[in-house]
Design a protein around this nucleic acid. Structure first.
Length: 336
DNA sequence: CATTCGTGAAGACGAAT
DNA sequence: ATTCGATTTCACGAATG
């Protein structure tokens, strides 16, 4: 690590995940009042004039002739768990939001706001406030019953925080949570800090979701040293037998390229070089990020859009020497 | 002058003993 | 637990444009 100003990666895109928790592809229903009135009164298809019949399965009303949906389903039947037999059907059918692994109680609890306001935003009376305070106290006791739960609670908060900082979508955090729970179940924690394990879990999850972040990217957002969570990761991956494939250098290319404001032509050239390199078997044992950085540098030279080795190195968190060592090999592989 | 290149020492890692 | 081989990083100086 250099002591001087660490590269600021403000351009890291934070994917705003706008999916509602349990909403599948909710079909949009036009709510313009006249239109709605129109639709309701219509019993013949506007397209072909055929009869409109109700589709009970989906709550649609559609034309028998042409299949045009006249009145869309207004009930959100979002993705639900498939029930494969009657007992599953009984146990899985339920009301409410889907279970979320990122919440230590899987999101099944009620949430009591800390604000002393009612649902309309009005201040609460003194008596009500007292009641709420007692509720909160008990709520807290229930939520954090065992030490294990408290542990989980803290850990999963960490996971969410880091995922957000790295621009990783929610489902990666969920995967990380699953990994962390497994690690906990297998008693992998003793001797390792919670922080190290959470970071390791998220790192693994990111790689398993094909959106890897390098160890160097994790270092600034984790509360523990890189070495520590790197060790924890290796240990966990081995013990849990996680199916983590070696990261594909190509997955780093777009992010580095856009950090440097390089044109797409350079990025695609870099990917070509990487493919050539992979086919020639240059990959083994080399750091994927280093490879990606070298490919980008080489591509920038080839495309006459030169950036310095050091610049690329800083964007990718590898040192210029590594780029030097790799980019010749890549060019050789591409030429031959 | 900035950038690139080459080199040796040092640290970390995986595999083997 | 230690040792070994490969790789990356750092620091430096030399060459190149």
């Amino acid at each position: 690590m250099t002591g001087e100003s660490p590269p600021v990666r403000t351009s890291e895109r934070t994917r705003t995940d706008t999916r509602t928790p349990d909403a599948g592809p909710t079909r949009r229903v036009d709510t313009d009042s006249q239109e709605q009135e129109d639709e309701r009164s219509r019993d013949t298809c506007p397209e072909c004039g055929g009869d409109v019949h109700a589709d009970d399965q989906r709550g649609d009303r559609a034309c028998k002739e042409c299949g045009l949906v006249v009145e869309a389903d207004e009930v959100d039947r979002g993705p639900e768990w498939r029930a494969y037999n009657s007992s599953e059907k009984r146990s899985k059918s339920r009301v409410g939001a889907p279970e979320k692994q990122t919440l230590h109680d899987k999101g099944l609890s009620s949430v009591i706001s800390w604000e002393n306001r009612d649902a309309y935003g009005n201040a609460l009376s003194a008596k009500k406030r007292q009641q709420m305070q007692r509720l909160r106290t008990w709520d807290e006791r229930f939520r954090s019953q065992s030490a294990k739960d408290r542990n989980l609670k803290q850990a999963l908060g960490e996971v969410s925080r880091m995922a957000a900082a790295l621009g990783l979508p929610d489902d990666v955090a969920e995967t990380a949570s699953v990994i962390y729970r497994r690690a906990l179940d297998e008693d992998l924690l003793p001797g390792r800090s919670i922080e190290a394990m959470t970071t390791a879990a998220l790192y693994a999850a990111a790689r398993m979701s094909n959106m890897p972040r390098s160890l160097d990217e994790f270092a600034p957002v984790s509360r523990v040293e890189q070495q520590e969570f790197a060790r924890a990761y290796r240990y966990t991956a081995k013990e849990l037998g996680l199916a983590v494939e070696p990261a594909d250098p190509k997955q780093y290319v777009p992010r580095i390229a856009s950090d440097l404001d390089l044109p797409d032509s350079v990025a695609s050239q870099a990917e070509r070089l990487l493919e050539a390199g992979r086919d020639k078997g240059i990959y083994s044992g080399k750091s994927p990020v280093g490879l990606a950085a070298a490919a980008i540098y080489a591509a920038s030279v080839l495309e006459n859009d030169r950036v310095t080795q050091r610049t690329v190195g800083e964007a990718a968190n590898v040192c210029a020497v590594t780029i030097r060592n790799r980019y010749r090999e890549l060019l050789d592989a591409a030429e031959a």
